[in-house]
Design a protein around this nucleic acid. Structure first.
Lengths: 96, 96
DNA sequence: CACGAATGTGAGCATACCATCACTTTCGTC
DNA sequence: GACGAAAGTGATGGTATGCTCACATTCGTG
């Protein structure tokens, strides 16, 4: 049972990486152990935890979280700050 | 503000697709509008909502959710049922 | 029914993710 | 400091994702 990782907001890849790492450490697992249980490569676990790659595949992330007895929940976001709104306007309609 | 989509568990790609679709419809946006705002292709929005592809890129999903004023939260999963445990044992250590 | 808007589908191509292997660096313990 | 385990890095190659364009289908309204 997770105790420290409880309803942490996940807005970025880095958030997700930190969350996975936290869950893994709470269970006392090594990266290799997590990789084996989730059926992914250890290399991939590292890149996920460090947020080195922007486009990690969602299905693999979900498999890892399931193995870690963690769960994602989707809900309304708290109202953004004025600063966040300004940034959002800057990137409005932009293609990356 | 989202009203219907509130803290829905997301365990599979299909869950995510349904969640995104729900958030989009609550805002009254078309797929094309969502795609433009999030900077992704309309084709991709469709495949995400229908869960046609297992490995959608997490960064794009997060961008879409941000645009939709939705948020993912990571927390402990409720204890799995006996049936879920049996299935998990079947696939223990399996590579896909 | 007719019409338009929204949604869904197919093919082709570029890109980047991921697995594997080997190696290096960090960390903890003695 | 020495040792081993864990964590991190680099390169390579296969492959699936995602973008674009064009077309088909469904849906809602008059």
């Amino acid at each position: 049972m997770l105790t420290f990782v409880t309803n942490v907001p996940v807005r970025t890849i880095a958030d997700m990486g930190a969350g996975v790492r936290g869950c893994r450490l709470e269970k006392g697992w090594t990266q290799a152990e997590l990789a084996a249980r989730a059926g992914v490569s250890r290399r991939w676990v590292i890149t996920l935890e460090k947020g080195q790659v922007s486009g990690v595949e969602l299905s693999k992330v979900l498999r890892v979280l399931t193995v870690l007895s963690a769960e994602l929940r989707l809900g309304p976001a708290p109202a953004p700050s004025a600063e966040e709104l300004a940034v959002a306007r800057l990137y409005e309609g932009r293609r990356w």
